[in-house]
Each structure stands twice: as structure tokens, then as C-alpha cells.
Amino acid sequence: MPAINPRWIYLFVLLSCAGLLGYALYAQHVDGLHPCPLCITQRAFFALAGFFALMGLIFNPVHLGRYVANGLMLLSCIGGGAVAYRQVWLQGLPPDQVPACGPSLEYMFDNLPFAEAFRTLMMGDGNCAEVVWTFWGLSMPTWSLIWFCALGLLALFNMLITPKAD
């Protein structure tokens, strides 16, 4: 099997994350879809994965650096995937089991201790269980979960391949 240049994978992950974040901003500001706290958290994880891909693209690390860059991308994807899975799970709950809507994200971080605000954020609320957008029958958090899994697998693959010399 021919060796693959890891920079192409970094570039693909970076462009994917930028495109996904760009669409999320379009959906928010043009289509009027207001993100819930779990959606905002998923955006942060896409931004982190994209940032680590950008660092890999710029510095083209070798040996230990390649494991670190791809490991951080993978951890970002695992974290984002866990948040997306939580939201998909909330969306699948029967209406009588959906948690009540909570305070806004700004209110939580302004008025609650950080640990409590973070715990409340990760639990999600009724807003997170509402499906307001679908594509091919899948909600936005489901698509996020699919992308986190795909990008995480690419990061893992990029960590394990034998790189082609530039």
C-alpha cells in the first residue's frame, strides 16, 4: 500500500470542521435556528478538532508530535461525539421523560459555580430534545455524531499510518 501524506488528512479534517461550523452559523443567523447548550458544546469540539488539524497541517509533526496532534484531534472528536450522542439520546426520549427547559447558557455561567454550570450544560434540557432540522431524516446532532465518528477515525488512521516524505 502506498504511503499517505498526513497533511492531506489534516487538511480534510480542517476543511470539514470549518464547513460544519460555517453551516451551523448559517443555520443560526440566516435560517433562525437557535442553538441549545449541547449544540454550542458540539461546535466547540469541532473548533478544537479543526484547531489541532490546523496545527498538524502547519507544523507537519513527526514521531511523537504526530501522535500528540492526532491524539488531541481524536480526543476532541470523542468529546464532541459523546455530547452529540447525549443529544441524540435526549431527542429519542418519550415526551413525558424529556427534562424541563433550563436557564440560558449565559445565565448559567454568570450565576452558577463553574462545576455546577458545566454539569447542568452536559445534562441538556428540553430545548436540546427538540428536533427542528433534519436532512435525509436525520437530525443535526445525529449528523454531528456521524461527523465526529468519521473525523475521529481519520485522526486514528493518521496516527497509525506510515507517512510519506514530503
Rank of each mutant, 00 (worst) to 15 (best):
M1R: 04
P2V: 02
R7A: 07
W8C: 01
L11T: 14
L11C: 08
F12G: 07
F12V: 15
V13H: 02
C17H: 04
Q28I: 00
Q28M: 04
H29L: 01
G32I: 00
H34G: 00
H34W: 01
C39D: 03
I40N: 05
Q42P: 01
A44N: 04
F45S: 06
L48I: 03
A49Q: 08
A49Y: 01
G50L: 01
G50N: 07
F52H: 09
L54G: 10
M55E: 06
G56V: 08
I58V: 15
F59W: 11
F59Q: 13
P61W: 08
V62W: 03
V62H: 11
V62D: 06
H63D: 09
L64Q: 05
G65P: 07
V68Q: 12
V68N: 09
A69P: 08
N70E: 07
N70D: 15
N70G: 15
G71V: 13
L74N: 10
S76H: 05
C77T: 03
I78A: 15
G79Q: 09
G80C: 13
G80Q: 05
G81I: 11
A82Q: 02
A82K: 14
V83M: 07
A84P: 00
A84F: 06
Y85S: 10
Y85T: 13
R86D: 12
Q87P: 01
P95R: 05
V98M: 15
V98C: 11
A100W: 06
A100H: 03
C101N: 11
G102W: 06
P103Y: 12
E106N: 00
E106M: 05
M108Q: 13
L112C: 13
L112E: 10
L112W: 15
F114V: 09
E116F: 12
R119F: 08
T120G: 04
T120H: 13
L121I: 09
M122Q: 14
M123D: 11
G124H: 04
N127V: 12
W133K: 01
W133G: 00
W133M: 00
T134V: 03
F135K: 01
F135H: 03
F135Y: 05
W136G: 03
L138V: 06
L138G: 04
S139V: 02
M140E: 03
T142S: 10
S144G: 07
L145S: 06
F148A: 07
C149W: 08
C149H: 14
A150G: 11
G152C: 04
G152S: 05
G152L: 10
L153T: 15
L153S: 15
L156S: 10
L156F: 08
F157Q: 11
I161M: 11
P163Q: 04
D166A: 05
D166V: 04
